[in-house]
């Protein structure tokens, strides 16, 4: 397992390198003159040349790419923002925890609300509650997050004044962003857990569990739920990616000083180093999340764990983790 995880981590390096080269190349060839944008009207040609040299923008593509890779991979330095001239690594380090915090809370809310509802819905299949939840999931999925965000802002922030509309001043301020970004996820998780649960509770081993005289609750918790987790983890892990991407909108609307807002500022200001750095970080997170999801599979499903372990090599296997199959009966 550990070897497998390490291997996967190593594999991330070429992936990140690829992402970096693609992102760098795209921004390199994007039309637009960052220096002109930076200096604004009214600069002298000398200042232009000076600025270009200062930022290393007067060098060729390969030199710049090489420098960028060296700085990013070896020194963890993503350069400086064209607009604010601040270190991007520092800026991201200051902002990312907030985005991550909201992301983790979102996933948490998603799982904690979505799964029980989905399971409830599955157990009461075709009941009134199931129908109501199905409609609710449809609505949650159909309305874009930002519409929800704005509507809830108006309702809770302006009309009722229960919650602040901006910033992260108090714990209350976290409610709307987290709920808004979790809503579509809740819908997905709910539908997914309903479907999976319906499938799982029809499995033979659930019938076996029933014929053992176990309580229904135990059957759902111990036998069914764990078997539902794999597809749910896939969905949830995948959703973390869209939560990160969606942070651009949510953070902008709710005024949350996170990575999303930083990236948004970079996009609006054509601040390419900021865009590069943020995209690089987001893709790193996506890579890590994929790994985590895969490792979670193994933790839940021994069959997958066996597959991973098998990849370690044959020596370990014959060393006795799997004892020889004993077919001979005692009879």
């Amino acid at each position: 397992m550990l070897v497998y995880a390490l291997k996967r981590l190593l594999w991330m390096l070429p992936v990140m390198l690829g992402v970096l080269i693609i992102v760098f190349t795209i921004t390199y060839f994007t039309p637009g003159d960052p220096i002109a944008a930076m200096l604004g009207p009214g600069y002298t040609p000398e200042r232009y040349a000076q600025k270009a040299a200062e930022l290393g923008l007067d060098q060729g593509y390969f030199i710049r790419l090489g420098k960028y890779i060296w700085n990013a991979f070896v020194r963890f330095d993503l350069g400086r923002s064209y607009l604010s001239n601040l270190s991007i690594s520092d800026e991201i380090a200051a902002r990312f925890p907030i985005t991550l915090c909201i992301g983790v809370l979102t996933i948490f809310v998603m799982a904690v609300v979505g799964m029980p509802l989905g399971i409830f819905s599955a157990i009461r299949q075709y009941g009134a509650a199931d129908a109501a939840l199905t409609v609710a999931a449809l609505v949650m999925n159909a309305i874009p997050a930002f519409v929800f965000a704005l509507l809830s802002l108006i309702l809770f922030g302006v009309v009722l004044r229960w919650l602040p509309v901006n910033g992260l001043g108090s714990w209350k301020a976290w409610i709307l962003p987290v709920v808004t970004s979790a809503l579509p996820g809740i819908a997905v998780v709910m539908r997914m857990s309903r479907t999976t649960m319906l499938e799982v509770i029809r499995q033979d081993y659930i019938r076996t569990a029933r014929s053992k005289g176990l309580k229904e609750g135990v059957i759902i918790r111990k036998h069914a739920l764990k078997n539902c987790l794999i597809p749910l983890i896939t969905v949830t892990g995948g959703f973390m990616t869209s939560v990160l991407a969606g942070s651009i909108i949510v953070e902008t609307i709710f005024g949350i000083p996170g990575l999303g807002m930083y990236l948004m500022g970079g996009i609006i200001g054509r601040d390419y180093p900021v865009i590069n750095g943020s995209v690089l970080l987001i893709s790193l997170i996506v890579c890590i999340l994929n790994l985590v999801v895969d490792l979670l599979y193994a933790m839940i499903d021994p069959r997958i764990k066996a597959q991973y372990s098998a990849k370690k090599g044959k020596i370990k296997k014959s060393g006795g983790t799997l004892p020889p199959v004993n077919e001979g009966g005692a009879a």
Binding site: D204, R207, T208, K226, D301
Partner: peptide, 8 residues
């Protein structure tokens, strides 16, 4: 093959 819970 299916009567046993695969993950227990």
């Amino acid at each position: 093959m299916t009567a046993l819970n695969p993950i227990l």
